[in-house]
């Protein structure tokens, strides 16, 4: 039982170190998307029509 605790504790510590060094976060409430290729032209993503109207 104590061995399992040691293993789990060491694993938790390893993940904590990884999270601290790489900036990992649970990032609750965020969504990831990728813009369509056509929107990647310079300033394309600045277009109000791209985000709201013009769809």
């Amino acid at each position: 039982m104590r061995k399992l605790y040691q293993v789990l504790g060491a694993g938790l510590l390893a993940f904590f170190t990884y999270a601290q060094l790489t900036g990992w976060d649970a990032a609750i409430g965020t969504q990831k998307n990728t813009l369509p290729a056509g929107a990647r032209n310079a300033g394309g993503w600045r277009s109000y029509h791209f985000w709201s109207g013009g769809k």
Binding site: G29, T30, Q31, K32, N33, T34, L35, A37
Partner: peptide, 15 residues
């Protein structure tokens, strides 16, 4: 809010 990476076009949306 949207955080847009210029190089890849990856968007992170949040409120």
């Amino acid at each position: 809010a949207d955080l847009i990476e210029e190089a890849t076009g990856e968007v992170r949306s949040f409120y």
